[in-house]
Design a protein around this nucleic acid. Sequence first.
DNA 1: CGTTATGTTCGATG
DNA 2: GCATCGAACATAAC
Length: 268
Amino acid sequence: MPELPDVEGFKRVLAKNALRKTIDRVVVSDARILGKLPVGKFASSLEGAQLVAARRHGKHLMANIDRGQWLTLHFGPAGGLQFVGKPGGEPPFTRVRFDFAGDGSLAYTNRRMIGRVGLAEDAADFIAEEKLGPDALDRRFDFDALKTAVLSLKRDVKSVLMDQQVIAGIGNIYSDEILFQARINPVERVDKLSPAELKRLFTEMRKVLETAVDRRAGSEQFLERLPKGYLLPERKRGGHCPRCGSVLKVLKIGGRTGYCCPRCQQGC
DNA sequence: CGTTATGTTCGATG
DNA sequence: GCATCGAACATAAC
């Protein structure tokens, strides 16, 4: 499920429901989600502690533990984060649960076990180790920074948008929407884009992601919350372009399925 | 039963 | 080193 807009939503869930509450107990129901980190070490780092701040970088969510470390959450294609107010209301596929002293719990879910929960000593170091590029909505990541990051790459623009080392936060779903709004062919080489196209790419990247965050649209269940004229609600085989009505084209790029309008996106 | 999936990584190949 | 492609991970849903 999660790309930047979803993870921003999870950050808000965490910030609203989980900060400055003492963690009574950590329940890991599937240790594989921790990778090589031992369950005991993970649990003892959090039990009795409090989370004091939430931060997002790309598709990663991090929470500062009052003892100094950071809790790191990555969701893969099928993960999520929910607050559970009532005992026993644990959602399906909960892999890690943080129980607060008499004040509900926070459930990390992951249907496919692709994703990671872990600990880091420092947020900035963690971002560097993960080799993440700048967050797509970071204000310091301006048009010039995008140009610099992208112009030396001889790859198709969709793959570049999805490359977390270049820009962090965009996945298969939102790359389709950004390219549709910018009217750019996904298979066009990024270093061959005209200045006008490059400018539209930057503008629409910001606009689409901010719109999705504002409307809490995420990338799975709530796409109908997106404005009229957006591609994503129509993004399926046989779907039609919301601008010109053409049947959408299906393409394979970097092993993923993308959708585009052959008329509005320059013969995609 | 076969196909597909929103993320990431690794190996083979050019 | 750079780029592309396919497979793999694990599992549910259609």
